[in-house]
């Protein structure tokens, strides 16, 4: 229960940060990605601002045996850069560049009553499901063969 409260509180904080920094505005994100045009550095400042407390928290976590409300830290330990990672990130980046939405701003953006983040988010869920469906299919084929 306490962890659910923390999850809700951090979700609210995260969404507030996205709104304060105008990352919920796809035009702002596209202006950052438009490096050959009138480049808008806002997203770089947002990333820098986010990395500071986050990096401090990681260095603290290294000295802790466990987090305050759980028995252990759940930090990915995989360090292998494979094709799947690069291909996935590239596909994601292409979709990001098309409209200017990544998952957080799309979900948070629903709050302002526009229909576009709803359509985008629905398609995003469909994309996630498609990925699961395709990997399930490959697994099934492997197990048959």
């Amino acid at each position: 229960m306490r962890q659910t409260v923390i999850a809700l509180a951090t979700g609210i904080l995260f969404g507030a940060g996205l709104a304060v920094s105008d990352m919920v505005n796809p035009a702002r994100v596209l202006a950052f990605l438009d490096i050959f045009g009138s480049w808008d550095p806002a997203l770089a400042f947002v990333m820098a601002g986010a990395i500071i407390p986050s990096a401090i928290a990681y260095s603290i976590s290294n000295r802790l045996r466990q987090p305050l409300l759980d028995g252990r830290f759940f930090i990915p330990e995989n360090r292998i850069i494979d094709r799947k990672l690069i291909a996935g990130a590239t596909i994601f980046g292409a979709g990001w560049g098309l409209v200017g939405y990544c998952p957080g701003p799309a979900i948070a953006g629903i709050a302002f009553g526009d229909w576009q983040p709803i359509v985008f988010s629905a398609a995003m869920l469909a994309g996630m499901f498609l990925h699961r469906f395709s990997t399930d299919l490959i697994e099934t084929r492997k197990s048959i063969a």
Binding site: Q3, I6, A7, A9, T10, G11, L13, F14, A16, G17, L18, A19, V20, S21, D22, M23, F45, V46, M47, A48, G49, A50, I51, I52, P53, S54, I56, A57, Y58, I60, S61, L64, P67, L68, L69, D70, F73, I75
Partner: peptide, 16 residues
């Protein structure tokens, strides 16, 4: 705004 986002990530990491 970025600091708020990073604070959210920090709290989630240190608590959960």
């Amino acid at each position: 705004g970025g600091l708020l986002i990073g604070l959210a990530a920090a709290v989630l990491l240190l608590f959960s």
